[in-house]
Design a binder for these strands. Structure first.
Length: 206
DNA sequence: TATACGATGCACT
DNA sequence: GTGCATCGTATAG
């Protein structure tokens, strides 16, 4: 079932863990346009990231790690390059990528993506609601986690491994990136830490 | 089209 | 006991 995965050029082109161990805002911006390849539930999906949010180690009260290390935010204090997955509102999962180095406490939230490979799998995972357009499959953090087949067991999982990796898109220019305040938070709500491309898959107003 | 709100569970205090 | 880094539906306009 992994023919596709086996053919993908992981070693040469995938972003190494060290790529994520850089300033969180840089990672959040440079993930835009990036391709994510993820194996979950025995299926491989490939998507293009179009919306991210940065949660910073310093001066950011909305960051889960803002106060101290707890059981929930512990992954954020690891070295960058792993997933931080948590449940929100009792039913949705949010997928983050831990950034910078151990002890910092920061991450990038993946909010939306465009499907590239695996439309059928993603659609079936979203079977509850009627998903009309392909661009709605990964629109919003809860929907994205659902369509990707992510579970709470993916917490701490490497995002620089043969079963989960990213390819950078060097064609994205600074002028392509829209910067806004983050969605759904009250603390530090004025910080310009949400980044997105012009895409119908971006969450919020159309 | 725009706004309101209920669902639902657990980390955190 | 409180409050979410949300989503989908219902209701009003």
């Amino acid at each position: 079932m992994n023919h596709l995965l086996d053919q993908l050029p992981f070693v040469e082109h995938a972003l190494p863990a060290a790529w994520f161990q850089r300033p969180t805002v840089d990672v959040a911006r440079e993930l835009l346009g990036a391709t994510m390849v993820l194996r979950a539930e025995d299926a491989v999906t490939v998507v293009r990231i179009v919306e991210t949010e940065a949660y910073l180690a310093e001066g950011d009260l909305a960051c889960h790690a803002a106060l101290r290390m707890t059981k929930r935010n512990a992954p954020m204090h690891e070295d960058g390059g792993i997933f931080y997955v948590y449940k929100i509102y009792g039913m949705h999962l949010c997928v983050n990528i831990v950034t910078e180095t151990a002890g910092r406490g920061c991450a990038v939230l993946l909010r939306a993506a465009e499907p590239i490979v695996g439309h059928d799998v993603m659609r079936s995972r979203r079977a509850n609601g009627v998903v009309r357009r392909d661009t709605d499959l990964l629109r919003g953090p809860g929907n994205l986690a659902r369509a990707l087949g992510v579970s709470i067991d993916d917490n701490y999982r490497s995002c620089a491994s043969p079963s989960a990796f990213f390819h950078h898109d060097a064609t994205v220019a600074a002028a392509d990136i829209i910067t806004t305040t983050r969605i759904g938070i009250t603390a530090s709500a004025d910080l310009p830490l949400r980044f997105c491309l012009r895409s119908p898959a971006v969450s919020g107003k159309r």
